[in-house]
Design a protein around this nucleic acid. Structure first.
Lengths: 192, 192
DNA sequence: GTACAATTGTACCAATCGGTACAGACGAGC
DNA sequence: GCTCGTCTGTACCGATTGGTACAATTGTAC
């Protein structure tokens, strides 16, 4: 066991998860059948069920966990961390823009929230947004904003991101996402 | 033909569409199988395919058309119409709050936009949001706002609604939707 | 090179998918 | 009361679904 380097064994669980995420993003949870997952990941059912004995359910949970992990280290932690609030907000905006590929990529957690898939991963969906909101609120408080206002503004920022992703896709206009991110940053900075 | 009143014939196409909408809302397009549609509408496959020979595709299109029709008469037209802009915006906020049941109901068009189902109804999804945005922008222009700013503010308002629906469901907190609607109205009125 | 565990392809399963066919029940108009 | 078009339940279709079982392959440690 341990790290199997090179050869076919190169496909470790951790390397498969991002491919799974993309499959879910592009087809939804229900729409991502095992056959499309197989194509997208290049793995057969044998390997898939070897890495994820729990089937699609476990795949979905693993994807959500990976997304949450990425945001935790790349977005949430810097927000909480002891840096300049204004810089932290700028960094968040940049990270979000990169992650969502300027609106061309969908937020899987948001999509799960709208779908009834939410009921399968209630905790993970809720925690993702709650953690983001609280981290951003902490940044604002660090910048001198009162707690209730900070919380409200943080919620507003998340709404801006999620709504922009919806509208951006619906109108098929990347400009919408860029404008929304700019608006979000401007409003947050205006509080500091 | 014509209106068949009473009896089993009471189930006209128009009466079925809202039930279909609810089935799609609660399960997504792919998740709403013919069996759950049958349960939700109380109609068997025979009736379903009698009213919608095109199958699920036609059902989806009919639902989107009905939603668009409702918003056209209840929201878009009043926004365009010759009334007081401030009153029109207040009416829009009230209509939206009612329609989405204070956030407990999902926007099907938004859900379709995130899902890949969007590719099946590209025009209808796009037109719904474009019509809303343009109608709201017209209201603002009527109130003296310059065209580019009006368009931006209108987009911001739609983003607020869609984002709030996502976050409201994810956090399972109706308060989020109410706060977002209030914020939206306040920002729009501040421009007039 | 042999042994052993990690990995993988394939065959198979019952259940369900969306869709079709069609016979019969039903109502309204005469 | 007969007829005709509307409406509906049921049986059935091939395809695909998520999932299981298992034998074969693979890479590696010894």
């Amino acid at each position: 066991m341990g790290r199997t380097v090179g050869g076919k064994g190169a496909s470790e669980r951790a390397q498969v998860v991002p491919l799974l995420a993309e499959a879910f993003r592009e087809n939804g949870f229900e729409g991502a059948s095992l056959s499309v997952i197989g194509q997208r990941t290049g793995l057969g059912k044998g390997s898939l069920y070897h890495f994820f004995p729990g089937g699609k359910e476990e795949m979905g949970a693993a994807v959500l966990a990976q997304i949450d992990g990425w945001f935790e280290t790349e977005v949430f932690a810097p927000l909480r961390g002891p840096g300049d609030p204004r810089a932290a907000i700028g960094a968040m905006r940049a990270a979000v823009d990169t992650y969502f590929r300027s609106g061309r990529r969908v937020c899987l957690v948001g999509a799960f929230a709208l779908d009834n898939v939410r009921e399968r991963f209630p905790g993970q969906v809720r925690d993702y947004f709650a953690a983001w909101r609280d981290a951003l609120a902490a940044t604002l408080e660090r910048g001198g904003v009162a707690a209730p206002e900070a919380r409200d503004a943080a919620e507003d920022a998340l709404i801006q991101v999620q709504g922009a992703l919806v509208l951006c896709r619906a109108l098929d206009d990347p400009e919408v996402f860029a404008a929304a991110l700019a608006r979000m940053e401007r409003r947050l900075l205006a509080l500091l």
